[in-house]
Design a binder for these strands. Structure first.
Length: 309
DNA sequence: AATTTATGCAACCGCCCGATC
DNA sequence: CGATCGGGCGGTTGCATAAAT
């Protein structure tokens, strides 16, 4: 026979996660590692469905998640990958390991769709003929492919070299561990609460604004009675000194799944692009590849990768 | 200042596929 | 070999906040 049911859905809590639940979940994962989600509610006593636990971990608590606004480069990469892969957000997210598929999906739906619409409206107003995908010459296709590979290479390069600084030079500071995620959320929440007026110097602007935005949504605001216990419990569990070591350990010991960058796997076969890309392509080509400089995969040749498709 | 509308995003839902029994 | 489950994925919803009126 099969396995017992995942969760009976009776007495399963829904809605925003509280800091306490986050702490319990992170604490469990620190001990047992991610996986075996079915056992999580039972072992931790969380009144959550296993799916909910997994989702919370992968979308919010997982180490290495970059939060806050997307950089222009990320934006272009998403647009390009979306044109290439369609709405396969998990595949797209694999090129941006520090972003979750949910994040990318949300960003696409809320920002990029509109942006593209505008661009395409402008395109049709200009009277420029829309590119028929079928008529894209082989040369153009190969050029696009080469760009895709360059972008993927860079994403992989950045993912594998956390110390590598982006042109902006401040990216590394935005990579934080799961424990840091929660600790800072908690601290930000506490400091941003109506009672407190002091600045939260420990937070970056991104994180700060994020905390401001999510404070009530996270439902943390309704857990005031526990705020001190939570943060104290949390700090005792994951003191900041331990973050650095545990963080690097964690990120380095990530399973291939977690740290994976699936470059041109089977699932990433380029579907026939349905989207006219002439202006868009120009935009992407101009800035996406022009200023990237030499990357650590510069020895990878297009010809070698074509076989992968 | 009060109300309405738009926006952003965390979380849920339902489906699919591979694994397990 | 079929039934069932776990995990992953994409689409959608619900709600808090921001912006507009």
């Amino acid at each position: 026979m099969g396995r017992p049911p995942c969760c009976d859905k009776i007495g399963v809590k829904k809605g925003p996660w509280t800091p306490e639940e986050d702490i319990i979940l992170v604490s469990y994962i620190q001990q047992h590692g991610p996986g075996n989600w079915r056992a999580v509610p039972t072992i931790t006593g969380l009144l959550r469905c296993s799916k909910s636990c997994r989702l919370r971990w992968t979308n919010y608590l997982r180490p290495g998640i970059k939060r806050g606004s997307f950089t222009e480069q990320e934006e272009k990469m998403i647009i390009h990958l979306q044109a290439l892969l369609g709405n396969r957000w998990a595949a797209i997210a694999s090129y941006l390991p520090q972003r979750t598929d949910n994040d990318i999906k949300n960003y696409w739906n809320t920002h990029l769709k509109k942006k593209l619409k505008k661009i395409q409206e402008g395109q049709s107003r200009d009277g420029s003929s829309l590119t028929n995908p079928d008529s894209v010459s082989r040369g153009q296709w190969e050029r696009r492919l080469q760009t895709d590979i360059e972008m993927a290479k860079q994403a992989l390069c950045e993912a594998l070299s956390p110390d590598l600084k982006q042109p902006g030079g401040h990216q590394a500071s935005t990579y934080i561990s799961s424990t840091e995620n929660i600790a800072k959320l908690l601290q930000g929440w506490m400091r941003d609460s109506p009672k407190s007026s002091g600045g939260s110097s420990i937070l970056t602007d991104e994180q700060h604004s994020h905390n401001n935005k999510n404070k009530p949504k996270m439902d943390y605001g309704r857990e005031e009675k526990n705020e001190m216990e939570s943060s104290e419990a949390f700090e005792s569990l994951f003191g900041f000194e331990s973050f650095d070591s545990s963080n690097s350990d964690l990120s380095q010991s990530l399973s291939p799944d977690e740290a994976s960058i699936t470059i041109f796997q089977d699932e990433s076969k380029p579907p026939h692009s349905q989207e006219p890309l002439s202006l868009l392509e120009k935009w992407l080509f101009d800035e996406g590849t022009g200023s990237q400089g030499k990357d650590c995969f510069s020895d990878i040749k297009l010809d070698e990768n074509v076989d992968l498709f």
